[in-house]
Nucleic acid binder design. Structure first.
Lengths: 196, 196
DNA sequence: TCAAAGTCTTGCTGTAGAGCAAAACTTTCT
DNA sequence: AGAAAGTTTTGCTCTACAGCAAGACTTTGA
């Protein structure tokens, strides 16, 4: 395991400043709420059935959020890269067992914040309230876009869409997982890649 | 056009009280922000390309939210029935042109609140802030569930799912629209209904 | 109350994409 | 460096579903 990236706190501060600017002092107060941690490739941050206890801010690497359905098929709905928060919001909000897994795709460094701590900050610190609102809004918008864009599109058009919208996914994520994100089989994806 | 349902304000008050209880007096102050209006069957509250200017609280009837894609195919993502808020959140949040249409499916009575008014209340009245958070959370959760539940399901399983999750849709909404909600053709839907 | 418009059903045909299996290629580990 | 494990590609077959067209049934409105 490599050592924790030194710029981590700057990345987080930067994230804040884009949405809800925060003073140096206020930020210092926030720091203790976050814990740096490391997850090796393929390890799980959360498994289906567990309660989601934390949010994760990606410092370096990536993880995916996916679900295994009754027929044993994997469905990936999100890849979190650097400077993004990711978690199973539904489980956090409802306190219900997660229907999703969070799994590191690349070696992963995160800043972790506990659910209770986070929601407390949402209530008490207006910047964090704003951050949360922003996270919800974005989560919603992304998910909307995904429904509309992918529904009723041919497999080839989905691939082109991905290339356009999220080129990072194609360059950093193994094909098998990309296929499960697009909702097509790995065979079809492989064939389509040759067609451009 | 029938006359506006008399219990409308009670319905709205009731909605509030389940999420963010509010006093009689505070509620009276809120009332002027909402305007009762009526939309006949099939009329549009909003069309693709326009800016979404309002949120709608359904008093009686129903409307749907749908998108027409490049191949001219309709995709319905939501049916709003009594005591639900509905709008194109994305367009409201981003101030971007709507990619969705809102259309009355049954004769429709709503309480309408303007976007600017609403966001102002979100900032100034903590109960409305809570309502908004709740709307965002629910919108997100619903949309999540839809992705997971429908992706990779056979057409028959989708139908069973609908029967289970949203029986109202099957009983009140024309088949053609139901099909566009499930992402299957009207022909397939018709055939499957006979298979139970 | 009956014509006209809209909606639902059903037969038939065509096709996109799933899924298996085996080969080619890549990465990982000792 | 070479064996073992994992991933990607490709050929082949099979099926669920789309989409047209024509007929049955339902709703609407003058």
């Amino acid at each position: 395991m490599a050592k924790f990236p030194p710029g981590a706190w700057d990345q987080l501060r930067n994230y804040f400043s884009k949405i809800a600017p925060i003073s140096e002092g206020e930020f210092e107060d926030l720091k203790p709420s976050f814990t740096p941690s490391y997850f090796p490739r393929n390890s799980f941050l959360l498994r289906q059935g567990e309660l989601c206890q934390s949010m994760y801010f990606v410092v370096k690497g990536s993880f995916r959020i996916f679900h295994i359905n009754d027929s044993g098929q994997e469905l990936t709905r999100y890849f979190a890269f650097e400077n993004k928060f990711g978690t199973n919001l539904t489980s956090m909000i409802e306190g219900s067992p997660s229907v999703e897994n969070l799994q590191a795709v690349e070696p992963l460094f995160v800043l972790e914040i506990k659910k209770a701590t986070f929601f407390q900050l949402v209530e008490t610190i207006s910047q964090v309230n704003k951050i949360y609102r922003n996270i919800l809004q974005n989560a919603y918008i992304t998910s909307q876009r995904r429904i509309y864009d992918l529904q009723g599109m041919s497999a080839l058009d989905r691939l082109k869409w991905l290339l356009e919208q999220y080129p990072l996914i194609l360059s950093r994520i193994p094909s098998r997982l990309v296929a499960s994100y697009l909702g097509i089989s790995q065979y079809t994806l492989s064939r389509l890649k040759s067609e451009l």
